[in-house]
């Protein structure tokens, strides 16, 4: 399973980087979406895949859980990263919308005024 997921992560990274290198800013943003998803999936995969119980402690039980449970921290990390990614990408979408209005082109090659 982790081999499969690792392959998926690799494909996601490759796709993301390919899209980021395109000239179209819409594709650029899609690439960024994929990139943040790839990172999230990487956290999920690398923190260990288990097929055991969810990390919930029944009411009244002691803090120590019997048997192996899934790692809740990795899930919390991913959740946080998704929330942050959502916020940042919402901003990026607004940005390219405004940039399109100003520059009137969906092409990074038209946006070279500030270089050099």
């Amino acid at each position: 399973m982790s081999t499969l997921l690792a392959t998926a992560v690799g494909v996601l990274y490759a796709t993301a980087i390919y899209l980021i290198l395109r000239r179209s800013i819409v594709k650029l943003v899609i690439g960024l979406v994929l990139l943040s998803n790839a990172a999230n999936l990487l956290i999920f995969t690398s923190s260990g895949l288990t097929r055991y119980a969810p990390p919930l402690i029944p009411e009244g039980a002691s803090a120590v859980v019997d048997g192996i449970v899934a790692d809740p921290l990795a899930q919390a990390l991913i959740l946080t990263a998704i929330v942050i990614g959502f916020g940042v990408l919402a901003f990026a979408v607004v940005l390219i919308h405004r940039a399109y209005e100003v520059v009137k082109a969906d092409d990074m090659d038209q946006m070279k005024d500030t270089d050099t």
Binding site: L32, L35, S36, A38, A39, V88, A92, V103, M111
Partner: peptide, 22 residues
């Protein structure tokens, strides 16, 4: 100019964040 600069700023910083997160 701000929009053009911001696109580069946002892209590279987001790439960096993704690498950091990985």
């Amino acid at each position: 100019a701000q929009m053009e600069g911001a696109i580069k700023y946002v892209t590279l910083n987001l790439v960096s964040s993704a690498i950091f997160l990985s």
